[in-house]
Design a protein around this nucleic acid. Structure first.
Length: 562
RNA sequence: UGGGGCAUGGUGCAAUGGCAGCACACCGGCCUUUGGAGCCGUGGAUCUUGGUUCGAAUCCAGGUGCCCCAGCCA
């Protein structure tokens, strides 16, 4: 990365400043996912920021699972998160768990109790809530707030030992019940949870730390210098700083930034889960989902996702509850940009229409040379069989052409890519007046696609040889929702599901594609980028549409209709 | 309503007191054996009012709008 393209933003500036002033003499960041769901595109921003800030400063990144609540977390998600993060290319020096520090954290809590800075509160959850006050009214001190240290120590120990039922008591920091920032009104540090067992510590613990207590202290214990998080934690920063101050331990710096979201999709775990559970999509890896596993299956290259997120930039813009909302069109543009450079070109006919070259010899088969990737000469060429009966795309023929239509129609000559110039002579229809065959004649002198007399055609169309082609299934995806902001309203997102978000087509691909394996990516010429799906069989490969090629004709057509 | 945060073309991000720029989208053109890619170009923005200043997107004051916080979630 050159100096000119070196990204700069308020976080990188802050980190550089900290190094310069000596506040820190190294950089260590942490990635703190809670293992309670699959990673989606929104997570990538935080992941990349943490990773790159560390990397750019020759520092370290620690992947630390924030597993402080056994009622929500599962090992299954730990594995999935690691897999997805690796796929993105993120590297860490070690994997840790908040639960690794439960013992030490408990010692620190006792220290706070001994200092008179924390107390066991016997109020019910309802009472705690009622006494917290409101935005405009201060809270009320708990009647148990001034318990003496011995009693607090005893009660805390017994909480830990499981002597009390869930919800009966909590450990709270003693700060200020009248504080204008609600997070400072004696925040809960530990709550009692007997069941279920924790995914790592089993039944050892009956009390579990809250986020505010665990996260910041874990940062401190791990020597994290910069704890980068999303905007909604801004109000927690005073508390984040209060604990280490009291404890006299290493003080990391928290910096907040705006989260990333995409339009035309939903990102909340609960809503995504509903889509899966109600069968609106095929699963968490359905290519229409915004999860990383779905994007992987759809064929998005990880580099493109990373590039997209980086180009979006970092800011503190807070104009929606979802953070910054990126236009899906921008993501697609970046994906196209990557794929254009990398993808092997192939020919595939999604909606077949038979084209018969009447003056082509019945039994002749010619091997045509086709370029694998015009953007990459090293990709070489391949042979594609050509014969008398072909399939072309239904969209590439019109009996009566609209204005500006350059493709095949009676009397018009077009080029069959890498093959010949052909001129349409007539069509054959069935009893329902539907076109079943298009007939044409070819010019034998134009083999390869160029006319010796120098005449030009306005269009080149793709094709496959009917007797050589391989049958294939194509899954065409469109945005999952019809509205830019489907999150609006509780039921709203279900009501604006796009009924055409999946369109399955059966057609043909050139014979070379018989050997494709899941994960292979191609550009099907003039159509889009596709990725071989895991549902493929030897008999019939399945291709997912990653993203369409830009389609100027469809714009013209749309305008024609207006 | 108390506290915290944010306002720059349609969207996202720059400009750190000195000509408001970049990307995507949109529109027009060139080129093309992908109506792809590439290339060229047009239009369009500093929330508002006042102040400081030779000069303000930037600094100050007021206003307006939007986002977050009243979990024993993270």
């Amino acid at each position: 990365m050159t100096d000119e393209t070196k990204p700069t933003d308020f976080i990188r500036e802050a980190v550089a400043e900290d190094l310069k002033t000596g506040r820190f003499n190294y950089v260590r960041t942490r990635l703190p996912p809670e293992p309670n769901g699959y990673l989606h595109i929104g997570h990538v921003k935080a992941f990349m920021i943490d990773y790159l800030i560390a990397k750019e400063n020759k520092g370290e990144l620690i992947l630390r699972f924030d597993d402080t609540n056994p009622t929500k977390e599962e090992t299954e998600y730990v594995d999935a998160i690691i897999e997805d993060a690796r796929w993105l290319g993120i590297e860490w020096v070690k994997i840790t768990y908040a639960s690794d520090y439960f013992d030490e954290l408990y010692e620190w809590a006792k220290k706070l109790v001994l200092m008179g800075k924390a107390y066991v509160d016997d109020q019910s959850p309802e009472e705690v809530s009622a006494n917290r006050g409101t935005f405009t009214e201060p809270g009320k001190n708990s009647p148990y707030r001034d318990r003496d240290v011995e009693e607090n120590m005893d009660l805390l120990e017994r909480m830990k030992n499981g002597e009390f039922p869930d919800g009966s008591r909590v450990l709270r920091a003693k700060i200020d019940m009248a504080h204008p920032n609600l997070n400072m009104r004696d925040p809960v540090m530990y709550r009692i949870i007997h069941e279920p067992p924790h995914h790592r510590t089993g039944s050892k613990w009956k009390i579990y730390p809250m986020y505010d207590w665990a996260h910041g202290q874990n940062d401190s214990m791990e020597g994290i210098t910069h704890s980068l998080c999303s905007l909604e934690y801004r109000d927690h920063r005073p508390l984040y700083e209060w604990f280490p101050e009291q404890l006299g331990v290493f003080q990391p710096r928290q910096i907040e930034f705006a989260r990333l979201n995409l339009n035309y999709t939903v990102m909340s775990k609960r809503k995504l889960r509903r889509l899966v559970e109600e069968g609106r999509v095929g699963g968490w890896d359905d290519p229409r989902m915004p999860t990383l596993r779905a994007m992987r299956r759809r064929g998005y290259p990880p580099e493109a996702i990373v590039e997209f997120v980086m180009r979006m930039g970092i800011s503190t813009t807070a104009t929606s509850n979802a953070g910054v909302i990126a236009d899906i069109a921008f993501l697609e543009a970046v994906v196209r940009e990557q794929l254009n450079k990398q993808s092997l070109r192939r020919m595939a006919v999604l909606k077949p229409l038979k084209l018969v070259i009447d003056n082509y010899p019945d039994e002749l088969v010619e091997e045509m040379d086709a370029i694998n990737n015009p953007e990459d000469p090293d990709a070489g060429t391949r042979k594609v069989p050509f014969s008398k009966v072909l399939y072309i795309e239904q969209d590439d023929f019109r009996e009566t052409p609209p204005p500006k239509y350059y493709r095949l129609f009676p009397g018009n000559e077009v080029r069959l890519r890498y093959a010949y110039l052909v001129k349409c002579t007539h069509v054959v229809k069935n009893d329902n007046d539907e076109i079943v065959e298009v007939h044409a004649t070819y010019d034998p002198a134009t083999r390869g696609g160029d006319a010796p007399d120098g005449r030009k055609v306005k269009s080149t169309i793709h094709w496959v040889s009917a007797s050589h082609a391989k049958e294939a299934e194509f899954r065409l995806y469109d945005r999952l929702f019809t509205r830019e902001d489907p999150e609006e309203g509780e039921e709203g997102f279900i009501n604006c599901l796009n009924p055409n978000s999946l369109n399955i087509l059966n057609g043909y691909v050139e014979p070379l594609l018989a050997q494709t394996k899941p994960g292979d990516r191609f550009q099907f010429e003039r159509q889009g980028y596709f990725c071989t799906d895991q549902d493929s069989t030897d008999k019939k490969p399945v291709f997912n549409l990653t993203v369409q090629l830009k389609d100027t004709w469809s714009k013209i057509e749309k305008k024609n209709k207006q």
